[in-house]
Nucleic acid binder design. Sequence first.
RNA 1: GGUCCCGUAGUUCAAUGGAUAGAAUAGAAGUUUCCUAAACUUUAGAUCCAAGUUCGAUUCUUGGCGGGACCA
Length: 592
Amino acid sequence: MSIVKSIQQSVTESLSALFGQPFAATDFQVNKTLEDFEGDYTVVLFSLVKKLKQSPDVLGKQLGDHLVANHSQVFTKYNIIKGFLNLTIADAYWTNLLQHNYRDICYGKKAMNGQKVMMEYSSPNTNKPLHLGHLRNNFLGWSVAEILKANGYEVIKSCIVNDRGIHICKSMIAWQLFANGATPQSTGIKGDHFVGEYYVRFNDEYKVQVEKLINEGVDKAIAEKEAPIMKATQQMLLDWEAGKPKVIDLWKTMNGWVYEGFDVTYKRIGSDFDIIYYESNTYLLGKETVQQGLEKNVFFKKEDGSVWIDLTADGLDEKLVQRKDGTSVYITQDIGLAQQKYDVYKIDQSIYVIGNEQNYHMKVLQLICKHLGLPYADRIFHLSYGMVELTTGKMKSREGTVVDADDMVDEMLSTSQQHTEELGKVKDFEATELATLYNTIGMGALKFYLLRVDPKKTMVFNPQESIDFHGFTGPFVQYTHARIKSILRKEPVPASWQATGEALLPLEKEMLVLAEQYPVAIEQAAGEHNPAVIASYVFNLAKTFNSFYSVHSVTHAETPEKKQLRLCIASITATIIHSGMQLLGIQVPERM
RNA sequence: GGUCCCGUAGUUCAAUGGAUAGAAUAGAAGUUUCCUAAACUUUAGAUCCAAGUUCGAUUCUUGGCGGGACCA
């Protein structure tokens, strides 16, 4: 049991004993005591003051005395300032953690809870390469999956590839018109970038054609529809849907190029999936659901034959679920796939890592499922994350300001290499070790940078800041780990350690207090679907350790007992850093 | 026009309704005969505005102002 829960329980018991009525842990707050006050944890008394009609001082004294009298092993003393009861926890409580619960704390992992979660993330389009926004999505999805696993969930990672539709046809048309048979192999360009270039090429040509028509006196809206390259693309989409072999072949070939490129990127950034769905297989799903919805009168048909749902009672408006020609819209297939996931995998929760621009869409999806009475409606959770903006504003493909994921990774790796070489600490490393190290540091910096911010919030990407390896960064935490490991190579951690009753120094205690909070941080991170909680925690732990051992020598401690204590503290700190960073998808080096 | 999100040091981010609003970075000043200076120490600097609820509001409510997203 965590110390906070333990305090809550003791306080509840004491209050009941003192006042002869039942209390709950929610009747009061337990916080960590602020640094400038004496004590470790604080009970905030105000809410109790009101309930019991006693002054904070009188109430605090009664409670404090009762706690110390009945739990002398835990609470050694207390003080009351205003309405705050500051409790001091016995040193033995903290040192006991090292002797008994050591492993539990370090790994923070809980037993399996029998709950199954599907985590859908990444979900790229096959017409262009991944960019910075995708990186946030990938890191977030992967990390939250790990955090949920640490909390006892079984997690299935999935991805839906948007591999069909008008945007793919644009790349295909442009390739037919301009490529002269070029391929990624013949040009040496990575497949996803290669195909992306033709998507850009399409837009360039389209723009020229539209302008030409406008200059000939054609109305803008009509010009946009009638541009020959656009008409050809529309025709290609129809041919694809009709299954024309020539079109299907080209589609398969070009998507194949893209997947080859994606595989390389996914491998570098550490994304993986248990299941990959392809929209070309799922886009017809959900049609039956439309029929059922009509029969249940959840949906209604307009005069032109299109099918709608009325969500005005939910504060939204009417939403199209099937076009007048009978074809599906996005939401239809989303319902279908949600159903399939639920049927096949019997999942308890279905998480979608999708940008907040889709908030409305996801709300509609959930509402429709709810109105249809589908059992999985309440199990859908949209893990909505904010856009990544640049210091100069938003990324816009038209203005060429999109930061490419591969370029980003390349830059991080070369920066970490350059920086490491400048410091000159790794001259005895072999070539393969060096490559691994640069990768560990570069990816660590990038992942930490994107995960340290609350996912829900729009964040600003500052290129200079992202490659900074000082302060609140991945390399800072990695460096702390490497330094601890350096100590532990020289001095083995004692297998067992006995407290001698020597008082803990403030920083020794602080390290133990922090270590105790690791499982709490994991729980909080899972509850909020927020890896930033782990990033903050791990940084704080590393930072405190740096202060700790700049003041207190480990290997040259004052006494043998202190040396053993500090070796244990160093060891659990390294283990927690390793484990916490793992939850963020970040490796930690033994040396750097 | 409608719905939703966001406004905190120069900048990028924190803060289950709780004590003197924390970090990082940039700025200023220091620390290396001693476990890796990618480190440590000190210093200066902020809640968009106005009401309301509360013992107590960065947090909750309402109204402004500013920024963003989505839906027609």
